[in-house]
Amino acid sequence: MNTTLLLVQVLNGLQFGILLFLVAAGLTLVFGVMDFINLAHGVQYMIGAYLGATLAALTGSFWLGLLLALPAALLFGLLLELLVFRHLYERDHLSQVLATFGVILFLNQGVKAVFGAAPLQMPVPEALSGGVRIMEGLLYPAYRLAILAAGLATAALLWVLVERTRVGMLVRAGASNAPMLSALGVDVRRLFMAVFGFGAMLAGFAGVMAAPILSVEPGMGDNLLILAFVVIVIGGIGSIRGAFIAALIVGLVETIGRSMMPDLMRLFLDASAARQTGAALASMLVYIVMAAILAFRPAGLFPVRT
């Protein structure tokens, strides 16, 4: 494997990591601040993609679709909070897992009933439809660069919000000790609701951004959700910084592992066995890395609670 290809794969890994970060950021906030396991975060990503695709088709513009999908995803998140999640904060994790798993099943079938089972498409915006030639015969789509930029901007914005504003201070306080925060006279319920709505909007944003390159279909969030959980566990639950670093690690390990593992295996095995074991090992690699990191830092890279 030559250097150009390796650099391209690093870029691919970073870009996948950024996409993971967009999904994981909301998840880590909700899990960290509210101590609430929201398995339905993946379907909120799916809802975002569906809203984006539908609104873009209705308005005929990607940008209007994106702009309208964000408040719609926020409202949808708040509605879910009001109807379902609010009643689960006091319950144990098992009830939360069961209830939010129910929400996954319900919403996956729900979008199928409304939009049909066939995948939808959301066109790439005209301005970003080109690409940059990064190696012989391969274009790097401008839209993927836009995802990179959007992810970095989101990370910066979140950092400012969490580290430099009053609301951010409350969020950090809530993440480390919610009962104490409540005792100090902060309306924790309202804080939770705001955090949850914001998390839902982030997931929706990730969904809209992913829609032009990925297929918009029922259950599309389920696969990404597992990786998002890996990301927040590696990063330290509740830590935005941790989620950012961990998302990049997972993205890089996923991508580079997949492209190099079969070659690596060929050193020990014959070609056809190397391909299959390489592919199998590559899909395990992320979890092996997670196990290794947790062995040394059981609370993740940037633990919030000490």
Binding site: N2, N12, L138, T255, I256, R258
Partner: peptide, 9 residues
């Protein structure tokens, strides 16, 4: 994207 880069190479 990783597989596509490989195809291009």
């Amino acid at each position: 994207s990783a597989e596509l880069a490989r195809i291009a190479a």
